Computed example of a mutant assay.
Amino acid sequence: MDVNLGVKSIITCLSASFLLACTSYPENGSGGIAEQYTGSDFSPVMPDEPLGPEHGLRFDWKLTKLHLDALIQEGAPWCFPAAVLQAQQRQDRIARELEGGLWIDAANDIVIQRKKLNDLELRLDYVLTQATCAPPTNRTEFENQMSIVEKVYNLLNVDNQFAFDSIEVNPKYMGHLAEAANLLKPYPEIRLSVTGHADASGGKEYNERIAKGRAQQVKRYLTIFGLAPNRIDTHSLGEELPLYEGNTPGVMLTNRRVSIDVIADGHSTANQGVEQ
């Protein structure tokens, strides 16, 4: 993919020293103007404007947007529609964080977005060696499926899921799991990939173990609520790829979580069973 080779060759990571002075995790759970941002681009840097970490992050955001746009042009929405939908939502989230001045949060999400896009690119490259990605024949059915994907993704990727040093699901999140399971029952072609996470307290091995336990516990409850176990994969990242950086109680609470990808069958001309 020549377009992406050019993009990848110039992707750079900002030094952590640029970000130490930046604040994160907005007070009272409010993102301020970050929550109101609905645009898809940013104003250019003026010649007399001093450069700061936000400019490097905005450049990184543009690079991930170029990468995503290139995958879309190659047909990714038809082979991997759920992955593209979730990547677009994550891209918008990063834009809101940048507009609201949440530099550390944006930097974390950019790292996650890069990994997800690289994984999507590898899967798309493999599929395109054997097939083409074509729009679905039944557009209404496809749009209904994507509506369910979006609802389930938003239901399951929320804050405040687990208590400290625990794999037990918080009661409110339990309700989200039940609602998501009910939404998914009529759509057996949709699967879930559940990844467990831990906060930065505790050792690496322990964090890996408790994160895995959280993912497995979420799978257990989803199966209790009626989903077949073979529709749910579980993974663990321990304390790696935190949603937010820091050690305040609010940040630690948010990083004790599972992240869930909603996976829908693709629409390649060679294999209607290709999955994300």
Results as ranks from 00 to 15, higher is better:
S17N: 12
S43H: 14
H55R: 12
A87T: 04
G202P: 08
H176L: 03
G196I: 05
S193W: 02
F80R: 08
L241C: 07
L66E: 11
E99L: 11
L222Q: 06
G39H: 04
L66N: 08
W78M: 06
C133T: 06
I190L: 10
D2K: 14
E97H: 08
E141M: 09
V45Q: 13
M46R: 09
P171M: 03
M174W: 01
L63V: 10
P50D: 01
T248K: 06
V251R: 11
T269L: 06
P188K: 09
E54A: 13
L128H: 05
K115T: 09
G246C: 11
S147A: 12
A211Q: 00
L155N: 08
I263S: 07
E141F: 03
L85T: 07
L117V: 06
M174S: 06
P136L: 02
I104S: 13
W61M: 12
N154F: 03
H267Y: 15
V218D: 01
W61L: 13
D2M: 12
G52R: 05
E239H: 06
R257G: 00
R220K: 06
G196Y: 03
K172V: 12
T195S: 11
G6Y: 13
N230P: 02
T223Y: 01
D125L: 07
A16G: 14
G101L: 12
S40W: 05
Q113E: 08
F18G: 04
T137D: 15
K115M: 05
D69M: 08
P171D: 08
D265G: 00
D48P: 00
N144I: 04
S193L: 05
L5N: 15
A107W: 08
G32W: 05
K172R: 15
G52E: 05
N271V: 03
T254M: 14
Q130I: 02
D92H: 13
H267A: 09
A107N: 11
Q216K: 14
E179W: 04
T254R: 14
T195N: 01
N28F: 09
E74N: 06
L222T: 05
D261S: 12
F225Y: 11
S147L: 04
L155D: 10
P171H: 02
Y206W: 10
A34I: 07
D60K: 10
A82F: 00
K65Y: 00
I263Q: 05
F164I: 14
N207Y: 02
Q86M: 15
K151G: 00
E143K: 04
F80D: 01
R209A: 14
G52Y: 05
P44F: 11
